[in-house]
Amino acid sequence: MMTERASNDCAPVETPQELVLEMTLEFETVYAEHSRQIFYLALRLLGDAALAEDAAHDVFVKAFRNFTGFRGSADCRTWLYKITINHCSNLRKRWSARHIHIAAEDAVFDQYASLDSTPLQNLELKELGERTQKTLDGLPTEYKLLLLLVGDQDLSYEQIGTLTQQTAAAVRGKLYRARRAFSIAFARSA
């Protein structure tokens, strides 16, 4: 990636330090803007914080290796979401083939505990996280993904449609049923 970028720009050969600096600056911008969303999507799709961290790592590495080709061609958030969805879907397929199951009870929700809050608040937030995960895991995969994407207010129905390979109208229709299914399942999980 480094050599490709240097030759594309017709710039004089940069030192490794300069390349690292350039890459770091670009990385910082994209990472600061999108890391929370990408990690959260991976966390809820996989149901495990450690696996989500690995997945988010792979997504950003993959994204940066293809960054030159991406520039200006699409919305960055949508592009990163696409990589995340594909990556998590592939992981789930692999686990399914090997009969590996991640239970919400076993999932680690320690990422909440890092907030400067009381133990009681931590416990409540942890419980909320577990209930949310269990509810999402009980939904059809399509509903789960739609709800997670629509939870990102920056995404339009058209963008969600592009990500899930359907029309915006289909997204609206399915979202109604997904909301209903989530509400019922969440109420039952109390």
């Binding site: 890391s35 929370r36 990690f39 809820r44 914080a49 909440y112 907030l115 949310t132 709800l147 509400s183």
Partner: peptide, 18 residues
């Protein structure tokens, strides 16, 4: 559900090591 998921996302911190 979106409101709940938005809140859930807002309290989720990205791992420092990532």
């Amino acid at each position: 559900p979106e409101a709940l998921l938005q809140f859930d996302r807002s309290i989720t911190t990205t791992p420092v090591a990532l």
